[in-house]
Design a protein around this nucleic acid. Structure first.
Length: 281
DNA sequence: AGAAGGCCCTGCGTGC
DNA sequence: TGCACGCAGGGCCTTC
C-alpha cells in the first residue's frame, strides 16, 4: 500500500480540496471493500462540512461537522481521485467505490481495484478507541518515538527485525518499502533478530526511519504502479530508493570494485526484502 | 502468547 | 500476439 508518506501526501491533497467544504452529495458504487461500508455512510456524508483531517499510521481520518470521522485505509491499491464534478459527470470510473461531491463542484472518489482498503465511521471524540487504531504503535515522526521506546517494543522479540518493523503495533506506518530502506540506512541486516537490535544499531535505526519517511514526504510520496496522489500527480521518491526493487545493482555504499555482492532480494515471511549483505549487519 | 502461513482481489510484467 | 504464471506497497484470521 501506500505507506505512511503516501498516506500523508494523499491527506494533504484532500485537505486542499475538501477542508472547509460542504458535501453536497455522496454515493457508494458497491456496498463493501474489505468489509461492508458502515450503515448509512452516504447519508452521514451528505450535507456535512469537512472540518479537517488527521493521519494515524496508514489511516486517514476525515472529520465531519456532525461529530463523525470517516476512517479510511487505502489498502494496497487505493487512491483518491479528485476532478471537476462537471467533467463528464456520468462517465464511469473503474473501481471507484465511493464518491463525494462538494458544493464547490469538486468530486472526490475512492478508487481501489484490489479492494483491500476500508472505510468506516467513528465518533470524532473516540477516534483512538476504534478497533483498527487502538493497537497501533507510536507515530515514527513524533517526538515520542525514541530509541528507548523502540528498544522496549523490540525487546524479547525472536523474529527478524524486518518482520518486527512491519508490525504496526511496534511502530505505525511502515510498510515493506520503507522498512527495507530504513534498515539499509541504519546498516542493519533485515535478518537480524529484533531483540538484538540494541546499542548503536538502535540509535541509528530511529533517525534512519525518520529520515526516509521525511524525505519521501518532502518528495510528495513515492509512486509505484497503482498509486496516484489525490490531485492526480505522482510522487517521485521511488527514484531515490536505495535498495527496494534494486536486486543485483551495486549498493551505493560499497566501493565499486569486485567482489561487490550487490543488493540482494530475499523473502521473509512471504515478503520481499532488499539489502546489501556487506554493509548491513 | 507470539509467530508463520494462507487468504482476500485485481492488474501488470515476464517468459514461453 | 496471446496466454499462463508469478508477483505486488497490507493486514486479518487461523494454525501451530
Amino acid at each position: 500500500m501506500p505507506e505512511l508518506p503516501e498516506v500523508e501526501t494523499v491527506m494533504r491533497g484532500l485537505r486542499r480540496v475538501l477542508e472547509g467544504q460542504r458535501i453536497r452529495a455522496a454515493s457508494v458504487a458497491r456496498p463493501d471493500l474489505r468489509w461492508p461500508f458502515p450503515e448509512g455512510l452516504a447519508l452521514r456524508l451528505t450535507g456535512a462540512r469537512v472540518d479537517g483531517f488527521r493521519r494515524r499510521g496508514k489511516y486517514m481520518l476525515m472529520r465531519l461537522s456532525g461529530g463523525d470521522s470517516v476512517l479510511i485505509h487505502l489498502g494496497m491499491s487505493g487512491r483518491m481521485v479528485a476532478r471537476d464534478a462537471m467533467d463528464r459527470p456520468n462517465a464511469p470510473v473503474a473501481h471507484e467505490h465511493l464518491a463525494l461531491e462538494t458544493e464547490a463542484g469538486v468530486r472526490v472518489g475512492f478508487v481501489d481495484p484490489r479492494r483491500f482498503g476500508c472505510v468506516d465511521l467513528v465518533p470524532t471524540a473516540a477516534e483512538e478507541a476504534h478497533r483498527l487504531l487502538a493497537g497501533l504503535g507510536p507515530e515514527p515522526l513524533e517526538p515520542g518515538f525514541t530509541p528507548a521506546v523502540l528498544g522496549a517494543a523490540l525487546a524479547g522479540k525472536r523474529t527478524p527485525i524486518k518482520a518486527a518493523l512491519l508490525d504496526q503495533r511496534v511502530v505505525a506506518g511502515l510498510g515493506n518499502i520503507y522498512v527495507s530502506e530504513a534498515l539499509f540506512r541504519a546498516g542493519i541486516s533485515p535478518r537480524r533478530l529484533a531483540a538484538s537490535v540494541t546499542g548503536a544499531r538502535l540509535q541509528r535505526l530511529v533517525p534512519a526511519i525518520r529520515a526516509v519517511l521525511e524525505e519521501s514526504i518532502a518528495a510528495g510520496g513515492s509512486s509505484l504502479r497503482d498509486y496516484v496522489q489525490a490531485d492526480g500527480g505522482i510522487g517521485f521518491f521511488q527514484e531515490r530508493f536505495k535498495v527496494y526493487d534494486r536486486a543485483g545493482l551495486p549498493c551505493e555504499r560499497c566501493p565499486g570494485v569486485p567482489p561487490c555482492p550487490g543488493i540482494q532480494r530475499i523473502v521473509q515471511a512471504g515478503r520481499a526484502s532488499f539489502h546489501c549483505p556487506r554493509t548491513q549487519r
